[in-house]
């Protein structure tokens, strides 16, 4: 049963990672535009962005690292996958896709508690990206 479960997990991961890459429109950084708290504009980073399903490759480095993470996860090289994703995270620490991909890898490793926590972190950066939010919420609900 265990290998079967592992296989299912890996397949799921591939599917989700594929999804991530296909819509890896990384969130726009508002880091350079400085906004003050206390004003209504100081809202969520990305709240005012509309959800777009077409790929918008903003940072090729991040996209490449996500792909590499996906590749390693496909072959069960989870430590390497995480290492690539964390490298991506250092470039875009507020990218919900990367956090979600990390959650996926942890899921594939049967690290459900970590997977859940990371998915919540992804959710905290998802802003108003409804499809992504729904995916993550579904993922969290599906966790044992």
């Amino acid at each position: 049963m265990a290998p079967m479960k592992k296989l299912t997990n890996t397949l799921l991961l591939i599917l989700v990672a594929g999804f991530l890459i296909s819509c890896s429109s990384t969130p726009q950084h508002t880091d350079s535009t400085i906004e003050m708290p206390g004003s209504e504009d100081s809202t969520v980073q990305g709240t005012d962005e509309s959800d777009t399903s077409e790929p918008r490759m903003e940072n090729q480095a991040v996209v490449n690292l996500l792909e590499q993470g996906q590749y390693h996860a496909r072959y069960g090289e989870y430590a390497l996958a995480k290492s690539k994703l964390e490298r991506a995270l250092r470039i875009e620490p507020r990218n919900p896709f990367i956090w979600y991909a990390l959650a996926q890898v942890n899921y594939a490793e049967d690290h459900y508690a970590e997977a859940k926590n990371l998915a919540h972190r992804a959710l905290s950066f998802a802003g108003s990206r409804q499809p992504l939010k729904q995916k993550i919420e579904e993922f969290i609900r599906s966790l044992p």
């Binding site: 508002t30 880091d31 906004e35 004003s39 209504e40 809202t43 969520v44 980073q45 507020r94």
Partner: peptide, 14 residues
Amino acid sequence: MQALDLPKPEGVVM
């Protein structure tokens, strides 16, 4: 440094 711009969660109003 980057400006502090925490995502405002749902259910919070200004």
